[in-house]
Amino acid sequence: MIEAICTIDRIVPICATVDDVLPIIGILVGFQVLVLRRSIPNLAQVLLGFVLVLLGLAFFIEGLERALFPLGKLMAEQLTAPEFLGLDASGTAPPAADWHTYLWVYLFAFAIGFATTIAEPSLIAVAIKANEVSAGAVAIWGLRIAVAIGVAIGITLGAYRIISGTPLHYYIITGYVFVVIQTVFAPKSIVALAYDSGGVTTSTVTVPLVAALGLGLSSSIPGRNPLLDGFGLIAFASLFPMITVMGYAQLSTWYAGRRSRRLSPPSED
């Protein structure tokens, strides 16, 4: 039995995932048994669910580390290498406004931000729940695409910031002002979900690839320090989905309003 588990563990590191999940299970069981003192409804089903989540995450992470992470990281390094960007050894970088030099970097930032967010398991979870709770008013794919576009814009702008060397907090604070203004005009029902979508976007899939991009960029551009300038992409990726999700809600209310006006007979006034 133990031997069998060890063999599986060598292929898919289940034990590492168990370590990550153990504190959560401990807290759940502790409060359920000691405080609530109730039996869990459908215990067998819930246990099966936990086993599936554990197995699923173990496979998911192992697969990513085996296939997509090495290639994606290598790609981020190659696209940001001085030779690829055509930077000369004299130590002066073309200005960030010279977008020709950095075209592929920006395109990669946008594409990888979008693609990793579509595959992000926690965003799938939140989209399923939001769809269920809103009785279908929030479409699963509508939300996921809105968030993914937000992350894509965020990472691209974050790459621009590293290249141009401008301070991070100017961008983030401007973004906050934007979020606050949008909150006033967005439909009230979407606000909490939009705020949440900032935090859920950046986890298992996005963080490692985006970190590689930031590190690569800040080590190739002369005058940037990877330790100081390599950070900040995650912050961009958590900010912009709020703006795009509220924008998505505003667009769909506007569209629904226009349609209903067109369908209903013109009023007398």
Binding site: V53, F59, G63, R66, L68
Partner: peptide, 29 residues
């Protein structure tokens, strides 16, 4: 290819487990 296949299987299992385990326990508690 093997890695991508593992990711696909993992994501499928995770989403099923979500609906069977994580969501029900969170709401029940």
């Amino acid at each position: 290819l093997i890695g991508t296949l593992m990711v696909v299987i993992g994501l499928t299992l995770f989403v099923q487990g979500l609906k069977l385990g994580l969501f029900p326990i969170g709401e029940a508690m």
